[in-house]
Amino acid sequence: MANKNKKTVENFKSESSPPTGIQVVLREFKKDKLAMFSFLGIIALMVAVFVIASWIIDKEAVMKINLIERFTEPGVSGYILGADEAGRDMFGQLIIGAKNSLLIAIAITILANVVGITLGIIMGYYGGFIDNFFMRIIDFFITLPTLMIIIVVVTIVPKYGITELIFIIAAFQWMSTARLVRSKALSEARRDYISASKTMGTSDFAIMFKGLLPNLSSLLIVEVTLNFAGNVGIETGLSFLGFGLPPSTPSLGTLISYAMNPIILSSKWWIWLPASILILVLMLGINYVGQALRRSADAKQRLG
């Protein structure tokens, strides 16, 4: 019997059926070479950054101040990308900074989206009073000047590092996801299959997260990807303004903020340019991937 079943499954696979899920995404990426290239590039970059930063580079050695080697030009005496005003290796800082920036962005994305998706689904599923209540809270949060509040909190909080930054930024990032998920969940939760699940005695919780959530996945994948690109930018922007990470913790933003010094901006390009290019490439790449995913989620826009 088991053998026979296996056979029928195989037979079925040879039948033609409309492309589903991952197949659509694959086709879309095959058609869009730029997105394909970006995707592979980002993955390679991230793996490289994490591997080099975690195992190959010694953080202590990189961050050691060595005034004799101050402003060494790239390629001279073992400094691949030169050294900064304190004689610290720029390549090492770039890699560690990229790792920190990516970690922060990933953590913010996960945190903000988990909260946003959970709330959005609950609002959309129950509707009525619960929906109204949380929507008003979201409206309130959206009207707040996010940047100002983050800057104030950063100034007030005494001990301040990567974790604190993640929580502060995430606290202002969940609203848009919640709103988006809610709007889709509102229409999806009124479908018959949700009622059908109810008639089977399934609990609300199980319906929301096992029945409803997968049906929002196409929307969510796109949203999360584009959010990720945005979050890389936010952390960098804050650090650039001097409200992100302390200088002892390198991130792409702190590296770019060296360019605030006019001398460095005009004559010591190797200090700020690599980080800027890395940010540009990262955000562009993630956006291209996100757009390809968005097209594959919407049959009208598909290329493949």
Partner: peptide, 10 residues
């Protein structure tokens, strides 16, 4: 309508 009453992703 069985199509709308079955979860499309299960």
């Amino acid at each position: 309508d069985p199509l709308s009453a079955l979860n499309p992703l299960m």
